[in-house]
Each structure stands twice: as C-alpha cells, then as structure tokens.
Design a protein around this nucleic acid. Sequence first.
DNA 1: ACAAAAGTGTTACGCCTACACCCATGC
DNA 2: GCATGGGTGTAGGCGTAACACTTTTGT
Lengths: 237, 237
Amino acid sequence: MPYVYKYPRPALTADAVVFTIVEERLHVLLIRRAGEPFAGCWAVPGGFCRENEPAAEAVKRELAEETGITGVWLEQLKTFDTPGRDPRGWVVSVAHVALINGARVQLDSASDAADARWCPVDDLPPLAFDHAQIVGYALQRLRNKLRWDNIGSQLLPVKFTMAALQLVHEAVLGCTLDKRNFQKRMLEGATIRDTGTTLVTGKRGPQPRLFAFVDRSREGDAHDGDCCNAVSEERMP
Amino acid sequence: MPYVYKYPRPALTADAVVFTIVEERLHVLLIRRAGEPFAGCWAVPGGFCRENEPAAEAVKRELAEETGITGVWLEQLKTFDTPGRDPRGWVVSVAHVALINGARVQLDSASDAADARWCPVDDLPPLAFDHAQIVGYALQRLRNKLRWDNIGSQLLPVKFTMAALQLVHEAVLGCTLDKRNFQKRMLEGATIRDTGTTLVTGKRGPQPRLFAFVDRSREGDAHDGDCCNAVSEERMP
DNA sequence: ACAAAAGTGTTACGCCTACACCCATGC
DNA sequence: GCATGGGTGTAGGCGTAACACTTTTGT
C-alpha cells in the first residue's frame, strides 16, 4: 500500500510537551523510545499524523495510546523543520504544549512504568531529536502565558485552595510570590469564584476556602488568540 | 518522477503575511493567483516547500520569485492544518509574518502590477483558502509584538526621524500616540541611537534629527524567543 | 498552650499618562 | 512675520510590590 505523489512530501509528526505539577514542582512527560532512531532514549510523546488528521488531534491520539492520558488542554507551540533534525529524512514536527492537572497524572498501567515518566523540568535527561530545544521553547511559552491567562485551571482539580494555586504559579515561574498580592490579583477580574466550601485538611490550622475557575472552556481544545504566542512566542517583561 | 512513501504524507506549503507601511498606513502584500484552485483570487504569497527545505527558506524563495522582494525579516507564525483548508487535499501550511521597510516596497517589474499589490489591512478583498484567518492572526501577533520588540527597525530605513517611527507605530496599532511619551519610551533602553545627523526636509520648520537602531540583527532570519507568540501567540494587555 | 497554616489592609514607590509652550526654518 | 513642524518637562493617578499580625485548629 504505497503512497505516490508527484512532488516530494515531508513526513508530518505532532509532538507534545506535557506539563504537570508533581510535589510542587513542574514536571514534563517523557517517553522512552522503543524503536529506532534514538532507541532507549527519552523523548516527548508524539508520532506521525494520519492522513488529513490535524496535528492537535494526532497529539491527543498519541498521548492516549502511549500513556492513557486524555482530555488535556492543548495549544500549538511551533513547527520544527530544521533539516537533519530526524535521521530518517524529511520529518517536520508540529510541537504543542499541553497541561494536565495533578489528579490525572497517573500513567496508564499498560505503559510500563519504565517507558513513561514525569521528569522535573530543571533536571531533564538528554533527549532524542531536537526535543531539548522544543521543551525549552515550551517552558518559555508557559511562563509567559502564565502572566496573562489563567493557566492554573488546567493544572489543578476543579476545586482548589488559594495556596495550591499559588504553588502552581511558583512552580511554573520558579520563584516565590507574596501571598496577599497573589490572592488580590487572582480575585480581581472574577476569573475565580469562591465555592463557599472549605477543605478539611486533617492538619492543624484553619480550614482553607476552596475556589473554582469561573470556567471558560476547561478541557480539550486549544483556544487560539494569544500571540504573544510566539506574541507567540512573546517576551519576558 | 513520482515520489513513493510507505505512509501518507501531507503537501507542505509556506506562506507569508508581509507587512509594510505605505502612506502612513499598514499594508499587506497580496498576490493574484494564476492557477487553480482559487484562480484569479487574491492570496498571501507562498508555495510548496522543496525537499528538506525549511519553511522559512521556502517563504524567502517564493517571495523573491513572485515579487522580487528579498532580505525581509521573518518569523514563524503558526501552522494551519484544518482539514479541507485546501481543496487539493492534505495540504499543511506553515504561516509566517514578514516585515519590509518602505524603501524596498517596490514590486518587481517582472510581476505585472495586476498580480501583486499592497493592500491596506483594514480594507482587504476576499482571500483564497484560509488566508483571511491567517492575516488576522498575523495582525494580532504584529500588534502584540510591537509593544515589546522594536519591530520598527524592519519597517524603516536605517536612519529615520522620530516622527517616522511614531507613524509606524500608529499605523500598526491603529491609534494615535503622545509625541513626548513615545520619544521617551523609545530612547530609554538604548535600542535607538541618535546619529547626530539631521534630515534636510526642504519643508519649513526645523530639521528633525535622524536616529538609527543600535542594531541587533537587521535583515534576514527570524530570531525566536517570544512565545506569547501564540503568547504567540499572546494576548492584548 | 503551642505550633502550623490561613486570612486580611495599608503604605510607598515607580511607571505611565496627560498636557502646553518655545524654537527653528521656509515661504 | 507667519505658518508649519520639531523639540522638550512636569504633575497627577494608577497599579504594583513590600510588609506583620491575628485567627483557627490539631496536637
């Protein structure tokens, strides 16, 4: 079943840099490659697009296949097409950024624990292809985006404490923030709602209030409209 | 000379939304399509990538072929892969934003004036494919980027008056700015240098001073590093 | 009672915005 | 000398960042 074209065409892959928070630190999902090239090497999840399959769909499919993870938030990052980036030849990759909340972090048991792993962003192993570059770019984007969008909604369960939200921001930005200023900024603009419930910690201290995002589009598809995207990519003020 | 692959592959195109300033207004370069599909329809310049040719290179090549324009500043915008966006089948386009200064705006005489044209961004004709969407996205990116990067360096000659720079910003943003605040912002940070020369206007009034960008990378290649890009794509603060 | 974590307001500084007059040159 | 456009400084408001104490609850 060969595919014949009049002109040369690239193979199209879709990759995802999947972030989550584990133990208050920002982690990236890595897959150990089974086959060549780079067999045994760590890489971000991804794979070839099927015919007429949008890259974002391919990413979701591959994520589900490789790790059992579904329902992630996804946004296109950048397309990587440097010649030689894949030893197999002309392979162009549409890279994505994905976020997943801690509750869903459990990897599919089908994927042997040795083959998929959450890795702290500040302690990455050598990566296959140009994936180190892709992860670096994704991290920049994530940090920039955090300043404007309420990204946290994708990294937390539906209800969360203000302290948890702050920890997410601190994990992403890699710095500490002032509690009062943070809360002030989060509550202005009404993107966050007080649920009226509190968390029973079982620890000593008061029971913290639980908040929820007012919820524009949790789950699933990317909503374009940043720029700074490379706006997209934009800059660090 | 057919090309045979084991799995289906998309055709890869590279398109460019080329901006410039004409008569103090922001314009986009449009090409009238000669062949099908969308024959006779206006579109942004672009074309198919050759084997192992990076999309950015393909854009430059196509620009030179179709309009004679060379040496533009270029940045990857976003990859468009919605099924059905091209009636010829599975065609994925890596869209770019390009900027060109007014002095080079002259279109190649080889390209009949009827086939290439600068069109004001606020008065675009119907465009082929999903190019209207691409232009809209590019415009967003450009406006966001202007707030941080000194994009003006690509839209002006080497030496320019402060008033000219302000006109560029006003044309891109579509609003008027305060003369003194603008000059203050431009001069702080030392991205602009006073050349010590003045422009002999031939008009009445004092001779305005000429400035120049201190010049990080005029000409040619995109320098990544925004994100908001899709920050890039980023947002409008 | 004591330790740990949650909740809450005020102040100071810096940045950005608004705003008007004088000067140089050509006609 | 008059009209046109260039050049320059200040004051006020807004937003942001710095900062400490009180309350709750479990041990």
